[in-house]
Structures are given as structure tokens and as C-alpha cells.
């Protein structure tokens, strides 16, 4: 019989930041429907940022690799989703009703799969050569991202393209007088499901435990007989797939896409992973939601501060917790 004594004191403080921000915003925003709409939009945006950033934070935590090429996978995911949607429509699949939602998921998951494949070669061709050297990692991954972006321009052209949601996800539902877009609700549910799935995998499977252990001390994982590079490639490929999937969702959310779609998001993504604590999935989740909801509130209350809000929240969080919301104890 294994005892559970003593109990563990868990750190819930960072978790309270989001409701605290929402409550504070409620004092400045007079109308419940407006507040609800802003909150839901912020949560949806936060979920997409989390999906994109989750892979990047694990990639950094596991192998200390700074991947500035992550943004390219966002763009690749968005364009591929568009092409699959157009291909599906061309083959006669209706982009309406439930079949429209099915087609949307086939397109997003197909985009994720191709992003994973590109990620695999990106790691093999570029990142493997620059392990342990941050400057070279920044240069080579930025270079790789530029090459991928230019290939996207060659294939899909330099102009902004439109991407539409299936009819069933267009429009909004009314809640306490607020009109909330259906697609946002879907994204929030989907983001929560993905987060819980990732937590489950990381906490209850041997591979998940290895990833968590590797983020803390990759040398020790090797000393226990595991090939850390193989684990890293796996995480890199999954991270690329998530960026592709998130990119597809982001393009559908915006309704338009360009080759630079990912690059525009990367500053926010980096803010989120630093704020969450490099390598921490839970920290990344809370930071993504916090940055997104606060940006939304600030943009409404004082539009002039909107662009700076993410940086200001990061500064405040890092003054409070210099290694991020949930720092990982790393001994490399």
C-alpha cells in the first residue's frame, strides 16, 4: 500500500490572474454584453496562441533550441488548409452544414500533417547542425523561415487571399445580450480539449514523462538510457504540426491570409513562452490566455495602449516571477 502522505501544496496563484484581469476589466467596461464579447474573443485568440506556442516552449525546454522558424509553419498551415478546402470544394464536397465542419477539420489536420513533415526535414537539415549555439540557431532558423515564406509566395502568390468559414460556423449566438461568434466558441472548446489532452499525455504516459524529465535535465534522461535526440525530433514534429493547425485556425478566424501571417504572430508567441516559463506547458496556457484577454480589454478601454499591453503584462509578470509563471527547475 503506497501512502499519499504528505500532501502537496499546489501553486494556483498564476491561475487566478485571468479571472482577476476579467474582474478588473469589468469595472472599466460598463456593459455586460461588451465585456462578455471581449472576454470570449480574448479567450479564443488566447487558445490559438497557446496551440501555436505550446510546441515552441517544449522545443526550447527540451533541447535549449531557439526556433525562429516556427512562424513559417503557421503560414504553411494556413495556406495548406486553404488549398485543401478549395480542393475539397472542387471535388464536390459541400462546404455547408456538418460536412462543412468535417471538411474544415480535414483541411486543418491535413495542414498539420504536412507542417509536421516539413518540421521533420527542418530539424534534420538545419537545427541538428546548430545544437548548443543560440546565435547560429537564431540565424539559421530565421533564414529557414524566410526560405519557406518565399516558397509560399511562389506557390500561392504575394497577394492577400480570402478564406471562409463553413456556413454552419458563421454568425453568432446570443448570450446575456452579447453576441458571441460560433467559431470563437468552437475554438475555445477545441483549445481546452487540446490542452487537457496534452496534459494527459505529458503526465500519464511514459513518453510524456520523458519529455517533462528532458525539459528539466536532458543529460540525466540520456544517462537513464534514452535517446534524447529522438524524443526531441518527436516533440519538434508535433510542435510544427500544432503550429500548422493553429495557423489554419488563425487564418479562418481572420478570414484572410498572407505569407507573413506567422511572422506577425511570433512576437506575441515569444512573449507568451517567456512569460509562462520556458518549457512549461501550463505556464504557456495561462500566459497565452492572459495576454490575449488583457490585450482585448486594453484595446477597448485605452486603444492607444493596445500594442504595448502584451509587453507591459510580461514585464509585470517577470518582476513578480523572474523565471515566468511556472518556472521549470533546469539543470543542463
Amino acid at each position: 500500500m503506497i501512502s499519499k502522505f504528505p500532501s502537496v501544496q499546489r501553486d494556483f496563484l498564476p491561475l487566478l490572474l485571468i479571472p482577476a484581469a476579467a474582474l478588473l476589466a469589468f469595472l472599466f467596461i460598463d456593459s455586460v454584453p461588451t465585456w462578455l464579447t471581449l472576454t470570449m474573443a480574448g479567450l479564443a485568440m488566447g487558445m490559438m496562441i497557446f496551440i501555436i506556442a505550446s510546441g515552441l516552449t517544449l522545443i526550447f525546454g527540451l533541447m535549449d533550441v531557439l526556433n525562429f522558424g516556427h512562424g513559417a509553419f503557421i503560414g504553411v498551415g494556413a495556406y495548406l488548409a486553404l488549398s485543401i478546402l478549395l480542393g475539397g470544394s472542387g471535388l464536390g464536397f459541400a462546404y455547408a452544414g456538418i460536412s462543412g465542419v468535417v471538411l474544415l477539420y480535414i483541411a486543418s489536420l491535413g495542414a498539420a500533417l504536412v507542417a509536421a513533415l516539413i518540421g521533420f526535414f527542418f530539424e534534420k537539415l538545419l537545427i541538428r547542425r546548430v545544437y548548443g549555439d543560440h546565435l547560429k540557431q537564431i540565424l539559421i532558423t530565421m533564414g529557414g523561415a524566410i526560405v519557406i515564406e518565399q516558397i509560399m509566395v511562389m506557390i500561392w502568390g504575394p497577394y492577400e487571399l480570402q478564406i471562409a468559414l463553413p456556413d454552419v460556423l458563421k454568425g453568432s449566438v446570443s448570450l446575456f445580450g452579447a453576441s458571441i461568434e460560433k467559431f470563437r466558441i468552437m475554438i475555445v472548446i477545441q483549445g481546452m480539449a487540446l490542452f487537457l489532452l496534452m496534459l494527459l499525455l505529458l503526465h500519464s504516459t511514459r513518453l510524456g514523462l520523458l519529455v517533462r524529465a528532458g525539459v528539466e535535465d536532458s543529460e540525466m534522461v540520456q544517462s537513464l538510457g534514452f535517446n534524447i535526440k529522438r524524443i526531441f525530433i518527436g516533440v519538434f514534429v508535433v510542435g510544427s504540426a500544432l503550429a500548422g493547425f493553429g495557423g489554419a485556425m488563425w487564418a479562418l478566424y481572420r478570414g484572410t491570409l498572407t505569407a507573413n501571417l506567422g511572422g506577425e504572430l511570433m512576437i506575441t508567441v515569444f512573449i507568451v513562452i517567456v512569460m509562462g516559463g520556458l518549457g512549461s506547458l501550463g505556464g504557456c496556457f495561462i500566459a497565452a490566455l492572459l495576454v490575449a484577454v488583457v490585450s482585448n480589454y486594453v484595446a477597448f478601454v485605452t486603444p492607444g495602449l493596445a500594442a504595448a499591453s502584451a509587453i507591459l503584462i510580461m514585464a509585470a509578470v517577470l518582476i513578480w516571477r523572474p523565471s515566468g509563471l511556472y518556472p521549470i527547475m533546469v539543470r543542463k
Partner: peptide, 22 residues
């Protein structure tokens, strides 16, 4: 290192190499 460990050598480093979150 992984192959060396699998050959039957265990290592207890000076910093103990504990996975704190596990």
C-alpha cells in the same frame, strides 16, 4: 550516453539529476 547506460552502467551525478516536477 544512452547506449552506454543500456550496456549496464548507471550514473548518479553530483547534482543528483532529480526530475523535480516528477
Amino acid at each position: 550516453t544512452a547506449q552506454i547506460a543500456r550496456a549496464g552502467i548507471a550514473y548518479v551525478p553530483e547534482n543528483m539529476g532529480i526530475f523535480s516536477g516528477l
